[in-house]
């Protein structure tokens, strides 16, 4: 049995059923496509589930190669997005680059700091001076 495909099939089947259930109440012809998509999704998901049940090989799920680094990257991203409107673009980006580089295994402080400095300066030149885009203001400049 292919567990990976079976579980995905179940998820898609539920999504298809949910789409039909929710879409059937749409007004007149705006329901055609949502309902059709839901029905087709459920049918193809059933096909995937049946095929995975008939598979004689045992295949189990392995979603990531290195969970610690994966979770560190995701958590850092969320932290960065939370910090962005509060601390400002350049401050939060600098903190994000340094933190994530350390978390995923970079151990040369000079390399981290020099590349971060060059990168942030290049971003400032491009976005603030050339493109003149408004980005979240730095906390120390906010009134």
């Amino acid at each position: 049995m292919n567990y990976r495909d079976f579980c995905t099939g179940v998820l898609f089947f539920l999504l298809g059923i949910g789409t039909v259930w929710y879409g059937k109440d749409f007004y007149d012809d705006s329901a055609y496509i949502p309902v059709s998509v839901g029905v087709l999704m459920s049918l193809f998901a059933l096909g995937l589930m049946l095929r995975s049940l008939m598979n004689s090989q045992l295949i189990q799920m392995r979603l990531m190669d290195h969970p610690a680094k994966f979770i560190a990257t995701l958590t850092s991203c969320i932290g960065y997005f939370v910090l962005l409107p509060v601390a400002g673009f350049y401050t939060s980006s600098t903190l994000f680059i340094v933190t994530l580089a350390l978390l995923i295994g970079e151990r040369r402080p000079v390399v981290i700091l020099s590349i971060t400095l060059v990168f942030i300066t290049a971003l400032y030149l491009l976005f603030a001076l050339v493109l003149k885009r408004s980005l979240p203001v730095e906390f120390f400049l906010a009134v």
Partner: peptide, 16 residues
């Protein structure tokens, strides 16, 4: 290790 965070910053600025 540095390509990952710098590319993520570029993506974020692009989307923002």
């Amino acid at each position: 290790t540095l390509l990952v965070p710098t590319t993520l910053v570029l993506m974020s600025i692009g989307v923002y």
